[in-house]
Each structure stands twice: as structure tokens, then as C-alpha cells.
Amino acid sequence: MKSLQKKLLSKVTTAALVVAAAGTAQAAGGMKLGSPAFSDHDMLPAKYAAKGGPRNCDGEGVSPPLEWSNTPEGTNSYAIIVHDSAGAHGLWVTHWLDCEIPGTSSSFREGEVSGAPAGGNYVDGTNRIGKPVWFGPCPDVGNRPQHYVFTLIATDLEPDALESGLDKAGLLAALEGHALGATSLVGRYAR
């Protein structure tokens, strides 16, 4: 009986290692989102924080550069959502929402979505202040660093499928059944 248990345990362990290795290989080859300006879970440079306003934000309001790769086959467009789940005292803040980014795109230049809509084929959503542009971090002074999650979603939708002005809930509802894959990048910020 013990011999049979050892053989079964060996087979289960081998199968688990094969599955784990396949999962690691798939993760290594899956969608990637990064920035030449900061690494995942690093502090965001102050220039990407919000500028001025009633909260005396200390940044320059410049949108960070982003690059992505290894997107799923059949991707026709992308959506991106940047949010802070601790913002607004835990009620979440959407800092940027953009959808219908053409499937041929693979990056945003630094400042590309600062101040004016990105243009091109992009259908801009609305951020915390109701604008279709990058709205940088501006956490309460003295807070621990908050986490700003950049999520890129690959979709099978054509670049003109969605209407302008969607908020986060509207975008997520519109993408139901059309998302092919996603990846995230986290930047932290405190002041």
C-alpha cells in the first residue's frame, strides 16, 4: 500500500511541477505593461503627480510614458484604467480612463495624454474630475504611499465601437464578453 501511495504522490508531484512550469512560462510570455520612467511598485516621479488646484498638488501634471507587448491574438483595441483604491478616503479615484486605443498601438509617450485628449482614434473616458485626460496623484499630505494601478485591457472590439465619456463602471460593462486579456503596473506616490 505504501508503495502505491509513493507512486501516486510522485505522479501528482510531477504533474504539479509540469503545471507550475507551464504557468510560469505562460506568465513570462503573457501581456506586459511597463514604463521607462518607473518600475512596478516603485515610487512615481513627482512630475507625474497632479499640479496645483485646491489641494496644492505638488506635481507637474505630466502623464507617464507606458509601453506594452505580448498582447493576445485577435486584439483590435485596448482600454486603460488608472485608479487609486485608497483615494477619496477609500471610495476609489479614477485618474485616467481611455478606451478604443487601436490594436496597432504599443505605447504612450510621456505627456501624450496630459491636458488634452490623446486624439487619434482614442475614445476618452472620464476621470475623477470629469475630464478625458491624465489626472495625476494628489494624496493627502502625510499619508503612506498610495498605489496607482495602471490596467491595460486587450479587447476584440473595433476602435470605433464605444462612445466617448464612459466612466469606469460604464467601460467595464461595455467590455463584458470582449476582454481578451489584461495586465497591470503599479506606481506608488506620497507627499
Rank of each mutant, 00 (worst) to 15 (best):
A182R: 13
A173S: 15
Y148K: 04
V123F: 03
V141A: 12
K131E: 14
I129M: 09
G136E: 08
V123E: 08
Y122H: 15
G125K: 04
R144Q: 12
D156E: 11
T126G: 02
L171A: 05
A179W: 00
D140E: 14
E110I: 06
P159W: 07
N127H: 07
Y122W: 10
P137G: 07
T151S: 13
A182F: 06
D160Q: 07
D160L: 05
I129R: 11
A116I: 10
A179V: 11
Q146S: 05
Y122D: 12
L180W: 06
V141Q: 09
G119N: 06
N121H: 02
S184F: 09
G115R: 10
G130W: 04
N127P: 07
E110F: 00
W134C: 05
E158I: 07
L152G: 04
G125W: 02
V123C: 09
T183C: 11
F135T: 05
K168E: 09
G120V: 01
A169P: 08
I129W: 11
D167E: 14
K168N: 09
P139T: 08
G165I: 12
V123T: 14
A118I: 00
S184T: 15
G125Y: 01
E112C: 03
S164I: 14
A182Q: 15
I153Q: 03
S114Y: 13
S184D: 13
D156F: 08
G119H: 09
L175C: 00
L185H: 15
V113W: 10
P139C: 07
A116D: 11
L180D: 09
H147W: 00
D124L: 02
H147G: 00
S184M: 10
F150E: 03
P145R: 07
T126Q: 08
G115N: 14
G177Q: 04
L157T: 06
V133R: 05
G165Y: 13
N121R: 12
L157C: 11
L152E: 02
V149Y: 01
V123P: 00
G125Q: 09
T151A: 03
P145E: 02
I129D: 15
L175E: 04
G119I: 07
N121G: 15
C138F: 01
I153F: 14
P132S: 14
S184G: 08
G181W: 03
F150R: 10
A173L: 11
L152K: 09
T155F: 01
V113C: 10
I129T: 14
D160C: 02
G177S: 07
H147Y: 00
T151P: 08
R128D: 14
G181M: 02
P139F: 00
L171I: 07
G142N: 01
G120L: 01
L172H: 02
V113L: 04
T183Y: 03
L185R: 12
G111F: 02
C138Y: 06
K168H: 13
P159Y: 08
A161M: 09
L185W: 04
C138S: 10
Y148D: 06
A118E: 07
F135Y: 15
I129L: 10
G111E: 04
G165F: 07
V149C: 06
S184Q: 15
L152F: 01
P145W: 01
Y148M: 06
Q146L: 00
I153L: 15
E163P: 13
F135Q: 12
P159I: 11
P145F: 00
V133Y: 03
L172K: 10
H178A: 04
Y122M: 11
L166W: 02
N143G: 06
